[in-house]
Nucleic acid binder design. Structure first.
Length: 476
DNA sequence: TGAAATGTTGGGGCG
DNA sequence: ACGCCCCAACATTTC
């Protein structure tokens, strides 16, 4: 193979893969390559990781290291600020090029711009590549040049723009340049905070590129055909479960999109529609960088939210007394993941039944989801709260009982995560408070002891939410 | 990517 | 046989 003379650095961030990694592919066209991951304890270029994400990253770094070792290469792990680390590495290795893939959080975009400036004075080439999204945010604007705020219109445009480009083949890494390159062992980064907690995550998830490929293959072969119906049933394996791999770039969105789009009858695939929701979220966060903390719809700044720590805590711990909500919150805590249908239900419950600010829910998800992603998390919470782009109307309030009966009719999901309800007949599994008192012992339930009473009455909570939304609506 | 309230229709019981 | 009432089932509107 003809390699360019000289030395290139590839900075691994959320692109922890060898296949279809354009920045890495470019680096690998050089004679020598330094593949580096930088752990920055001060989070100078990104939001500080949540605990579940940190655990995932730890496992992913092990996986990537092992992958490189298979071909006798080494992942260099450094600790510090990327500006300093990369500057030092350029000097130490005498590199003439630095490459990485673009990410879209506002903080990262700012950091990248100044980093590119700094490095441009030191090296011949600084290359930032597009691979985290299907379409760049400046490529999907309305005719008047402003961003889309309505999903369907955005979707139609995106489908027209996406071109089938060929994916980069798996990178074959050239050796490290001559010299001494100290590397921190993954476990010295202290990314795993609570071992007793992460054991539950470890039982379910196998981070890393090789497993991501297997998960995609399994989804395409066994689940994608039933996705439209099955994805809404939390007890079924109906969703792809690719989100954490996608977040950390262990698989590229283009490779998922093109694989699924090539299937029979995939033109209107609801799965592709979900992938494009991910695009929408990222584009919105680029165009409205404050939406991480502020509602897109300004009238919501006046919304009469309630701060109630004990209700919030009951929600996080899965003690609301609504089985479908509690099952979801417990699945989240035990596995670092929650089924998408249930995410909508628990989010609606926090925001509309408890009137707790969506930002609190977003923060909890950020900390506990292995697929926590700032753009998706922010966009989806604003959507549920009714203040986002193309948001659910304020009056659309999920009824946790009906949602349970509709999507978990046998109560199998509920009983998996709330085993204290396992003896309940399906008639009452979503409303244990309605069981005639004389039957409770038969089902092994002591309401208020083994399972809580509802912390709010949904019918009244709904009316209260409508009143609250009414107050801001009149001010529009 | 809801749910409740309200409106409409049509079949069957019954005087 | 006919009209009236009831109410389930479905449709539409409203929150």
């Amino acid at each position: 193979m003809n390699r360019k003379k000289g030395i290139a650095i590839h900075w691994f961030r959320r692109d922890l893969r060898l296949t279809d990694n354009p920045a890495l592919a470019e680096a690998c066209s050089y004679e020598w390559v330094v593949p580096i991951f930088i752990w920055d304890p001060n989070s100078s270029w990104e939001r500080a990781l949540g605990r579940a994400s940190a655990w995932w990253l730890n496992q992913s770094l092990h996986a990537l290291s092992a992958q490189l070792q298979q071909s006798d290469r080494q992942l260099i792990i450094a600790v510090g600020n990327p500006v300093d680390i990369l500057g030092d590495m350029v000097r130490a290795s005498k590199a003439e090029a630095v490459f990485w893939n673009r990410l879209y959080e506002p903080k990262t975009l700012r950091y990248d711009a100044s980093l590119r400036n700094r490095l441009s004075r030191q090296v011949k080439h600084v290359g930032i590549f597009d691979s985290y999204l299907l379409v760049e945010p400046d490529q999907a604007l309305k005719k008047d040049g402003t961003p889309y705020r309505v999903y369907t219109a955005f979707y139609n445009t995106i489908r027209k723009i996406i071109k089938t480009h060929s994916l980069c083949p798996k990178a074959i890494l050239p050796p490290l340049p001559p010299g001494n390159y100290p590397s921190a062992p993954v476990d010295t980064l202290n990314l795993v905070p609570l071992k007793s907690w992460t054991e539950g995550l470890a039982a379910l998830w196998y981070p890393g590129e090789e497993h991501a490929q297997r998960v995609l293959k399994d989804f395409v072969q066994n689940h994608s055909a039933h996705y439209k119906i099955q994805r809404d049933l939390p007890y079924e394996e109906g969703t792809s479960r690719l989100s954490p791999f996608l977040h950390f770039g262990e698989i590229s969105v283009a490779s998922i999109f093109h694989r699924v789009a090539s299937l029979q009858g995939a033109q209107k695939s609801p799965f592709l529609k979900e992938l494009i929701w991910r695009e929408f979220s990222h584009h919105l966060l680029v165009h409205f960088p404050n939406m991480e903390v502020e509602p897109l719809n300004k009238s919501f700044e006046q919304f009469p939210w309630q701060q109630n720590e004990s209700l919030f805590k009951a929600w996080t711990q899965g003690r609301t007394g609504y089985p479908i909500v509690d099952a979801g919150m417990r699945q989240l805590w035990k596995t670092g993941w929650m089924h998408n249908r249930v995410r909508m239900i628990v989010a609606s419950f926090l925001v509309k039944d408890l009137l707790i600010p969506w930002q609190r829910g977003a923060d909890w998800f950020w900390d506990t989801l292995v697929d926590a992603n700032l753009a998706n998390n922010t966009q989806n919470w604003q959507w549920v709260a009714g203040c986002g782009a193309d948001a659910a109307p304020y009056f659309r309030i999920f009824n946790p009982i009906l949602q349970g009966e509709k999507f978990d009719p046998e109560g199998l999901y509920v009983k998996t995560w709330c085993p204290e309800l396992s003896k309940l007949p399906k008639k009452w599994v979503h409303k244990p408070w309605a069981v005639p008192e004389i039957k409770l012992p038969e089902f092994g339930i002591l309401l208020g002891k083994t399972y809580p009473f509802p912390i709010v009455d949904h019918v009244r909570a709904r009316l209260r939410a409508l009143l609250a939304y009414d107050r801001i609506r009149k001010k529009i």
